[in-house]
Design a protein around this nucleic acid. Structure first.
Length: 602
DNA sequence: CCCCCCCC
């Protein structure tokens, strides 16, 4: 198998003197993990690389390729094709300049175990080409890429000296920045810029803003503080490309950023930022590491993730006071769904919540949402550093749109934000006959349980009423006969009302049947219609609910219920309310059945 | 040097 491929002999000599070789075929003779600065760092790997004639030990993989080593695809003797690379000359004080090869994109042609060492490659001699003038002059770094080699022609421009000094220089890939090497210039696109934020705490006060910088090799977050905010905030514009140098690097705190970099930068008084006016198509817009929604169920709370989903529905804006700060808050909860047929709630805040419009069911792309947990389900929340894009022009968004419009729209989804009653612990599964037999509803708080049941009969009589229009008030409104509706609870009259369903259904499983009352929101799910739509249908045809209810018959759901004994006319009656109705989550239900079977076997 | 982002 290995005979199929001929190594690109001599290509290392070209590449390592700044030249360009397309799709060079090389052999990996060794891999070595580079000691990292901290335990939170991503591992970095250095390769011993041969072109059959020469070998170099200064080859590095960008961390995006690490999985190839971890999964064993890339091992000793593997033959690879180098599809995209950058070289950088690193200045070692008092020593000869060293050129490093950074592999951005590669493909494994033959795995190591199916190959053996080819030829007798020798150490590539030290760079024998004359160093570029800018390298000597600025005592700094340079690089060339396989796709865009910056032109050293600044002397013919009418720019100022400062401009020329920046633009003449060859640049350094973001993925190779580290705190141990501070002579560099990057050429990066600003993919996101925060607003100016002020802080005040025990260590002082000030203002700051962050930006996300991106190039072909990777991305990094940069922050400017205090007077540097005044100096740079207006200069830096989103989507523009800049030459940036002389920032301080430090270990990134992963808790607050989802950028794929172990480090982040801080602007200093020496920092230089200069706009790049060339047309630079090679620098990407934004990098995403999308996590499919079903996988979020297993992701640790407080992790920052990127996600893409169709906004299937959204709540209205809700206003409340923060318990801790007393501040007035506004939120809106979106339901996102993707090809995994799972859905998750995403909370937007403030202005973003107010202005969001879900009517067209747009594709939402989020970079850096925080995973949180509520009532046993997982949810997502945006924060100050989150970037949200609506219907962005990226392939993933078009693919998702196509899926949703064609099939996703009609599929039932598993809601991973669903909460189980009782403080996050699993609600007990029971059979319908047990509701009576277990003596449910004796306590004053009632008993909670869930059943899987089929609707035998949905009662259509008195299934709807005109309620107080105030949000969250469910009181029946009295028609005053003059176009006004009176709510006794709010003690006022309104010119309007809202329809609410008064659901009642008989559901059955193998063991028996039981009558349930349903909250309006849950009755809507069973009927597949909003209360308002049902109300309007009845206005046109008083018997409309009979037909609507008939469509719900023989449908199967999970009913999460509360049973409580109530006293009616001196007679005790067990009342059971379906607090929540969901499509059957077979994964969850089957694991319950399996545990039951195991119990029987023991 | 921020990094709070809230609630059910």
């Amino acid at each position: 198998m290995a005979d199929k491929y001929q190594l690109s002999e001599g290509s290392l000599r070209v590449i390592m003197s700044g030249g360009k070789v397309e799709d060079a075929i090389m052999q990996v003779l060794g891999t070595k993990r580079i000691a990292s600065g901290s335990s939170s760092d991503k591992e970095r790997y250095r390769l011993l690389l041969s072109d059959g004639k020469y070998l170099i030990s200064f080859a590095m993989l960008t961390t995006q390729n690490n999985d190839k080593i971890v999964n064993g695809e890339l091992s000793d003797n593997s033959i690879i094709k180098i599809k995209k690379y950058i070289t950088s000359v690193i200045n070692n004080v008092g020593k000869v300049n060293k050129r490093v090869l950074v592999i951005l994109e590669m493909e494994t042609l033959v795995p190591g175990h199916k190959s053996s060492k080819i030829g007798s490659p020798e150490q590539l001699p030290e760079d024998d080409s004359e160093p570029l003038p800018s390298e000597t002059k600025n005592n700094t770094v340079s690089s060339s890429t396989s796709s865009t080699v910056p032109q050293v022609n600044g002397s013919h421009r009418n720019d100022t000296d400062v401009n020329m000094s920046m633009q003449d220089q060859l640049t350094h890939p973001i993925s190779s920045l580290s705190p141990y090497q501070n002579k560099w210039v990057i050429k990066a696109r600003v993919s996101n810029k925060s607003s100016i934020r002020t802080w005040s705490n025990s260590r002082g006060e000030g203002k700051l803003f962050n930006m996300d910088l991106i190039d072909e090799s990777g991305e990094i977050r940069a922050t400017a503080f205090r007077d540097l905010v005044d100096k740079f905030y207006d200069l830096i514009e989103v989507d523009k490309v800049y030459y940036i140098s002389k920032c301080q690097l430090k270990i990134a705190n992963k808790q607050f950023s989802n950028l794929n970099n172990d480090y982040e930068m801080t602007f200093t008084p020496d920092t230089i930022v200069q706009e790049c006016h060339d047309v630079v198509d090679s620098i990407p817009q934004t990098r995403y590491d999308f996590i499919s929604i079903d996988k979020i169920a297993h992701i640790e709370v407080d992790t920052m993730i990127d996600v893409i989903g169709v906004c299937k529905s959204a709540s209205d804006v809700q206003m409340f006071q923060a318990r801790s700060t007393g501040r007035d808050l506004k939120k809106r909860e979106l339901t996102l769904v993707d090809q995994s047929n799972n859905s998750i709630a995403l909370t937007l805040w403030g202005t973003e919540a107010e202005t969001f419009d879900s009517a067209s069911q747009p594709v939402i792309v989020i970079k850096g949402a925080r995973v949180s947990q509520f009532g046993g389900g997982k949810t997502l929340s945006t924060n100050a550093s989150t970037v949200m894009k609506i219907n962005p022009d990226i392939p993933e968004a078009h693919r998702l749109r196509g899926w949703f419009d064609n099939e996703g729209i009609s599929k039932t989804t598993v809601n991973i934000s669903a909460r189980s009653e009782g403080g996050g612990s699993q609600t007990q599964w029971i059979n319908v006959k047990d509701v009576q037999e277990m003596g449910m509803g004796q306590g004053d708080k009632g008993d909670y349980f869930q059943v899987v049941g089929t609707i035998l009969l949905y009662r259509s009589e008195n299934g709807i009423y005109k309620a107080c229009p105030k949000e969250d008030c469910k009181k029946k409104a009295a028609d005053q006969g003059n176009g006004m509706y009176r709510c006794d609870k709010c003690n006022r009259e309104y010119p309007n009302f809202k329809y609410l369903l008064l659901g009642s259904a008989n559901i059955a499983d193998w063991s028996g049947n039981i009558w349930l009352s349903l909250f309006s929101s849950e009755a809507e799910k069973v009927l597949g219609m909003s209360s308002q739509a049902v109300g309007e249908a009845i206005e046109n045809d008083s018997q409309a609910l009979v037909e609507i209810a008939d469509k719900a018959h023989f449908k199967e759901f999970i009913f999460k219920c509360r049973s409580k004994m109530e006293n009616y006319n001196d007679e005790n009656r067990l009342k059971t309310v379906a607090l929540r109705v969901d499509p059957v989550n077979y994964k969850e239900y089957n694991s319950y059945l399996i545990s039951q079977i195991n119990e029987l076997l023991n």
